[in-house]
Each structure stands twice: as C-alpha cells, then as structure tokens.
C-alpha cells in the first residue's frame, strides 16, 4: 500500500511540473522576456502569486519556463545514458569475461572517475557554457550508470534456464538479448531512469547556478537561484520558490521511482 502512496504522490508532483512546462509553451501569466523595472523585487501578491525578481519579471512565469529547461536537459541526458549504456551493458553481459566485456567495464570505471561536474567543466573549458553542453556532460555521466545496471541485471538472467531453452532453440546472443534479456531488465531501467532523471535535474540546476549550464536569456531554476543570492537578505522569496520547485520535482521523481520499484517487485517492498 505504501508503494502505491509513493507512486501517486510522486507521480502527482511530477505531473504538476511536467504540465507547468507544457502549459508554458501556450500561456504564462507574464511574458518573461519583458522587463518591468517598476515592479522589481516585489513579494508575493495577488498580481504576482510568487512575487517578482530584480528585473520585475514574474517568478511564477519564470519557474514555468524554467521547468522546460530542467526537464528537457534531464530527459535528453537520460536518453543519452540509456541509448548508449543499455546496448553496452547487454553486449558486455552477452560476452561475459571476453576482452570486449573487460573494455566496456573498464571504460565505465574511467567515466565514473569524472564526476559529471568535472565533465561539464572540461566541456565548458573547450566549447563554452551552454545548455547543450550541460546535457552532454550529464548524459555522458549517465552512460556507465545504465551500462552497469543493465550488465548486472542481464548477467543474472543469462544463467536462467529459459535462456538455455532459447539457445537450444538455436537463437543467437543478439536475439536472446533482445527477446529475453531486455524485456526482463526494463523494470530495473525504468526505476533507475526516474532516479537519473531527478539527479539530472539537480545537476542541471547546479551547473546553471555556477554559470556552466543554460545561458541568459534562457530561464532556468539554477540561474534564478544564482541571481537571487546577493539579494537573499532582503528578497528571500526570490531564492525560496525556485529552490522549492527543484526540491519538489526531484522529490516527486524519487517517490515515483520508489513506488515503481515496489509495484514491479513486491519482494523489494519488504526489504526497503
């Protein structure tokens, strides 16, 4: 039951921020590209439910538009991680103990030695800061996460008798990986995917905060926090709401991940 509660609560929170991002394409309370200096740094009010920033922009609108950046960056980064990591993990498991397996796993270890922030720093140093580079940095870091998870999940499946039965039916490693292994690791991947998604949102916020991610005028939660920092003593609302947006989105995704894991594997519910 607890698993279901997590799933609904987490799913609900995630849905709120995802729809805020989608709605922002069609409508926002105020245009975030128009500055309104007369109304700068106003606390929450009827006209501006979450207040305005130092350029008089509506913070609610900024958060809605910023959700786009966060979600897009994290989603594409998870896509990169899965798209490359899963095939690598499947291959490594299918050729367990071979030179190829060893190369893939050592390559993974190497990428793990570069935290995503370091990858971002290097990419920025070379190509300059941008949202695209944030995506690449977080995406590269996601590859070994999915490769390892897929490999370890696949290795235990390769010892199952149904894989042996498929081999007796004359199927090769590629076909077995596609028909028997991949469908049985998808649950693991979905759960890990939501977790990496939430980590991606945190990472994007961190990178934008230090100026390595989305550049102005693109709205981003991390940048909003960076802008608010010097004004935190007299305009705490500017720091409070974007931070809460990050916190609640990440919390929602994590709860959803837990809920999904419980739903897929009732055995884990007991152990969790």
């Amino acid at each position: 039951m607890k698993g279901n509660r997590n799933l609904w609560l987490g799913g609900g929170l995630t849905l709120i921020f995802a729809s805020a991002a989608l709605i922002s394409f069609l409508w926002v309370p105020y245009d975030t590209t128009v500055l309104d200096i007369a109304n700068k740094i106003k606390g929450p009010s009827g006209a501006h439910p979450l207040g305005t920033d130092h350029f008089g922009r509506d913070i609610l609108s900024m958060i809605m538009v910023g959700a786009r950046t966060s979600i897009a960056v994290a989603l594409v980064a998870v896509g990169i991680g899965m798209g490359l990591g899963v095939p690598l993990g499947l291959t490594a498991a299918a050729k367990k103990g071979s030179l190829l397996d060893e190369l893939i796993m050592r390559g993974n270890d190497l990428v793990f030695a570069f935290p995503s922030l370091l990858i971002a720093i290097m990419i920025t140093a070379v190509f300059g800061a941008s949202a695209l580079n944030a995506i690449i940095a977080i995406g590269i870091f996601n590859i070994p996460v999915f490769a390892r998870l897929t490999r370890s999940g696949a290795l235990s499946l390769w010892t199952r008798d149904y894989v042996m039965a498929a081999r007796v039916a004359g199927k090769g490693a590629a076909r077995i990986s596609a028909e028997h292994i991949l469908p049985n690791v998808t649950n693991l991947l979905i759960v890990q995917g939501t977790i990496q998604f939430s980590l991606g949102i945190l990472a994007e916020a961190g990178l934008s905060y230090v100026g390595l991610g989305a550049q102005p005028p693109t709205a981003s939660w991390g940048r909003m926090l960076a802008d608010s920092q010097t004004m935190i003593s007299f305009a705490p609302h500017m720091a409070l709401f974007p931070g809460l947006a990050i916190l609640l989105t990440v919390l929602g995704l994590n709860l959803m991940g837990d809920g999904l894991r419980d739903m897929f594997d009732p055995k884990l519910r007991r152990a969790r």
Partner: peptide, 19 residues
C-alpha cells in the same frame, strides 16, 4: 540435427520467460 533434440530443465520456475 539440433531440431531433432530437445531438453527439459530442472527448475520449473526459471525455465520460462515470465513476460
């Protein structure tokens, strides 16, 4: 030759893809 032989395994739980 292969198609003229088949096998039945021990574990009734691990012998089938659950999906």
């Amino acid at each position: 030759i292969r198609r003229r032989m088949q096998v039945v395994f021990q574990d009734p739980y691990g012998s089938f893809n659950p999906r």
